[in-house]
Amino acid sequence: MNRMIGKAVATLGGTALAAGVLLGTAAPANAAWADCPKGYLCAYLGTSGNGGSPGKVAGNNTNTTQYAKFRYADSAWNNGNSCNVRIFSERNYTGSYWTISRGARLYDLNDYGQLKYGIHSNKWCV
């Protein structure tokens, strides 16, 4: 069953949208930081928000590796309204991490530490 753990929790609580994953929608191929909805953490396959439409999550996720845009993320944007978000190099909030403040963007994840191998889990409001 192709879904994130966080999404499953949300479905149980009847609030799928809050924790869900938006599947990619079309974005201009060359628009940096494109297509990141308000309220979401967005992960891009290219540095500096390039690489087309991002992967998007609004909830906590103990495992984001099944989603290519997180598994191979090179940049990320916390476009959430409410909180900081922490991204981890391993599942279940373990490994190395970066804290992305509300409204902040990380430009080049691919160059530093274990996060260069992608985002494996994320936690909001830390």
């Binding site: 929790v9 609030t15 809050a18 309220g39 906590n60 959430g80 409410s82």
Partner: peptide, 13 residues
């Protein structure tokens, strides 16, 4: 985590 309401941050106030 799946079952203890850990799906996300509190609703946007």
């Amino acid at each position: 985590e799946m079952l203890s309401g850990g799906a996300g941050p509190p609703p946007d106030a």
